[in-house]
Design a protein around this nucleic acid. Sequence first.
DNA 1: GGCTGCATAGGCAGTTTTGCCTAGGTAATG
DNA 2: CATTACCTAGGCAAAACTGCCTATGCAGCC
Lengths: 216, 216
Amino acid sequence: MTEQTAESVDPVPQLTVFVVDDDADVRAAITLGLERRGYVVESHASARAFLERPHPERPGCLVLDYGLPGMNGLELQQVLNRQDRPLPIIFISGHGAVPQAVQAIKGGAVDFLEKPFRQSVLVERIDAAFAQLRDLISQREALRRNTARLASLTTRERQIVRHMVGHPAEISSKEIAAKLGISPRTVDHHRARILEKTAMSSAAELIAFVQRHGLG
Amino acid sequence: MTEQTAESVDPVPQLTVFVVDDDADVRAAITLGLERRGYVVESHASARAFLERPHPERPGCLVLDYGLPGMNGLELQQVLNRQDRPLPIIFISGHGAVPQAVQAIKGGAVDFLEKPFRQSVLVERIDAAFAQLRDLISQREALRRNTARLASLTTRERQIVRHMVGHPAEISSKEIAAKLGISPRTVDHHRARILEKTAMSSAAELIAFVQRHGLG
DNA sequence: GGCTGCATAGGCAGTTTTGCCTAGGTAATG
DNA sequence: CATTACCTAGGCAAAACTGCCTATGCAGCC
């Protein structure tokens, strides 16, 4: 195990713990505790400030106060959910309110902690969030690679793929040609190009692939 | 709209609201309120009693007290989750405990209500649970129908299907025959029988189907 | 012993797919 | 204006698939 330059170049960028809480003392306490344990922490006083930070794509998880002034935690969660950014959220809240916790978890939050909580509990949840994040990232990565292969398809080609995937019972050139109002010969031609571009060997393989990974 | 014998034969069996709470007053109150609104209610005083009821497959949803003596609500939820029975759960709890609510929702519960709650809120959640149930049931129904079609396949036929699904790039009779050490002609024969039995029109359709629904 | 179901395999004809060629029309682009 | 990309479409031949036929061997069952 030659462990030279362990700190130098990380293939996976360092994961960051984003902390959003309007209480400066809370931010300081969490930041301090986490940094002592070796985490990279970046804190913001409001949802707005967090949303406007540069490099919004940096991977990490979010420790989010529920009762923020302005845009509250739940609203921020919803904003983030609409973006398809992989960012697991751990809520923290001053007053243990069940309905809010329910909504947060239903919205995909990793957990909902009531203040005060022990740092060790938070660290546990952060590790869980990071594990979840790594899953999400690898899924996205796989999807991205696959979608890239389909991205080079032209409109017509894509249309034919859609039809084959949507109606796997009608994939003969004749049937597709009838649907599209063109010659079966042309469908053949497109099919050949599609298989070539996607490096697949049969319509079945293509359909199976798109069913698994989507068309993007 | 001739509404003769509306009550006689329901194609979908009547959905039941199961109530499990150790407090007889709570059971009575919920039962009364729901029956007045036309719901069919069946109540039990303990998780054990609910689990041991006859006809366990009757469709419905479960209004479940969290703080049951003996097996508590969360444990019952986990038992039910291990069975693959479609039964949406609405938790009710005397003391609003966030961690418990979090666990319940993560376990798939529809909601977690704190006592006391308004009947109208409960009714709302029950309707949501019923909607979710209907989705689950129709999904299961589709799966069941489909698995039945694959169930009539012989060992060899199933083996060939597995191979086609697992290696969609190698579905020509030649390739499959090579893998199995038999004649391409025989694979043709099996393929024809498979498509006939499953009422599919192409290998692609079969693969797409099995990918979606599994082989059972 | 006969019957049935399953796996094996071949023949033959018709259809389909696939690969490789040409080629015209259109729209965008340099 | 030339080039490029895309959609269109046909010819031709090899390969594959499909449907319908026969046929053998084996196992289990009445």
